[in-house]
C-alpha cells in the first residue's frame, strides 16, 4: 500500500533539486553585476568586493551552489544585504501569512465550487444550474486582481463591510486577521471556484448515471446519502485532480493579490524583492514558495489513495 506513496514522494526530490538549480541560476543569469544590483547605486567598489567575497561569488560555480544549497538545508538562507536581516527571518514572517491566505481561498473555492457544481448536476438544466454555468464561465475569465479592486471599491470603500487593505497578525487578533483576509481570499478563490463548478458538475453527472448510484437508491438510502455519500465521494477523484492542477495558479497569484490588498505575505516579498533587484531574497522566497507548492501537490496526490482504495490497494495486491 505504501509503495505508490513512496514512489511519489521520491519523485519530488529531483523536482525540488531542479527547482533549486533554476533558482540558483537567476543570480548568474542577470546581465551586469548582480552584486552591484544587490547593493544598489551608492555602493563603493570596496563594499562590492567585500560582498562578492561574502556571497562566495569568487569561488567556482558548483562550490557556490553547494554552499548555498547546504545553507538552505540547514535553514540558512543567507542575509538580506539591504536590511541586514537574515532572509530566513523574512520567510518565517511572510510564509504563514501566504499559507493562511491560500488555505482560506481554497476553502472558499471548494465550498462554493463543489457546492454549486453539485447543485447544477442534481438540478441539471434548471435555474440553479444555468446560474452556476454562467458564474463559472465569468469566473474563469475575470482577472482576479481586478476583481479584488472591485471588491475593495464595492464592499470595502462604498459599503464599509471589510477593510480595504492591511493585515493583522493571527496571534494579535484572530477575528480581525480573518476580517482582513476575506476579500483577498475571495478574489484569489474565484478562478479555482469557477473551474471547480465545471469539473464537479461534469463529474457528478457522470457518477449520477452510474449503476451503483441507482443501486444505492434501490437500497432505500436517503437522497443526501446517495448524492453526497456515494455521488460526490466518487466524483472526488477528478475534483481533487483539478484542485491539484489549479493549486499552482493559487500559489502564483498570491504575488499579485497580496499586492492589491497590501497583505504582507511571501508573494509580496517576492514582488518587492524583484522590483528592488534584491536577488538573494528573490532566490530564497521563490524557492520556498515553489517548494511549498510542490509539497502541497504531493499531499494532493497522496489524497487520492485516501479517496480511492483502488489506487492504494490494487486488485490482486
Amino acid at each position: 500500500m505504501g509503495q505508490a506513496i513512496l514512489t511519489r514522494v521520491l519523485l519530488v526530490i529531483p523536482i525540488l533539486f531542479g527547482m533549486s538549480v533554476v533558482v540558483f541560476a537567476i543570480i548568474r543569469l542577470v546581465p551586469g553585476d548582480p552584486v552591484a544590483a544587490v547593493l544598489g547605486l551608492n555602493a563603493t567598489p570596496q563594499l562590492i568586493e567585500q560582498t562578492r567575497h561574502q556571497l562566495g561569488l569568487d569561488q567556482p560555480l558548483w562550490v557556490q551552489y553547494l554552499q548555498w544549497l547546504g545553507g538552505i538545508l540547514h535553514g540558512d538562507f543567507g542575509r538580506d544585504y539591504r536590511s541586514g536581516h537574515p532572509i530566513a527571518q523574512l520567510l518565517a514572517q511572510t510564509l504563514p501569512v501566504t499559507f493562511e491566505l491560500i488555505v482560506l481561498s481554497m476553502l472558499i473555492a471548494v465550498v462554493a465550487g463543489v457546492g454549486l457544481g453539485t447543485v447544477g448536476a442534481v438540478w441539471r438544466g434548471r435555474v440553479p444550474d444555468r446560474v452556476g454555468q454562467v458564474l463559472s464561465t465569468l469566473g474563469i475569465s475575470v482577472p482576479d486582481f481586478w476583481l479584488g479592486m472591485i471588491l475593495i471599491l464595492g464592499l470595502a470603500l462604498a459599503l464599509g463591510l471589510f477593510p480595504s487593505s492591511g493585515f493583522t497578525p493571527l496571534t494579535d487578533d484572530p477575528l480581525d486577521n480573518l476580517w482582513h483576509l476575506v476579500l483577498p481570499a475571495l478574489a484569489l478563490a474565484t478562478g479555482l471556484a469557477a473551474v471547480l463548478v465545471r469539473i464537479t458538475r461534469s463529474a457528478m453527472l457522470e457518477v449520477l448515471d452510474q449503476d451503483f448510484l441507482r443501486a444505492a437508491r434501490s437500497r432505500g438510502l436517503s437522497e443526501r446519502a446517495v448524492v453526497l455519500g456515494h455521488g460526490l465521494r466518487n466524483a472526488a477523484v477528478p475534483i481533487v485532480t483539478v484542485i491539484g492542477m489549479q493549486l499552482g495558479y493559487l500559489f502564483g497569484a498570491t504575488v499579485v493579490i497580496e499586492n492589491v490588498f497590501s497583505v504582507p505575505g511571501l508573494g509580496r516579498l517576492i514582488l518587492d524583492s524583484t522590483l528592488a533587484h534584491n536577488y538573494p531574497v528573490i532566490q530564497a522566497s521563490v524557492l520556498v514558495l515553489g517548494a511549498v507548492f510542490v509539497l502541497t501537490n504531493l499531499l494532493v496526490d497522496i489524497a487520492y489513495t485516501v479517496i480511492d482504495p483502488r489506487v492504494a490497494r490494487p486488485a490482486g495486491a
Binding site: M19, F251, G252, L271, F293
Partner: peptide, 24 residues
C-alpha cells in the same frame, strides 16, 4: 522532459516573475 517538468513544477506566475527578474 525532465527539465521541462521542473519548469512546470513552478506556479506559472512565479516562473514568469523569475524570468522578468532576470531579463528585466
Amino acid at each position: 522532459m525532465r527539465p521541462l517538468d521542473v519548469l512546470m513544477a513552478f506556479p506559472a506566475i512565479l516562473l514568469a516573475v523569475v524570468v522578468m527578474a532576470v531579463l528585466g
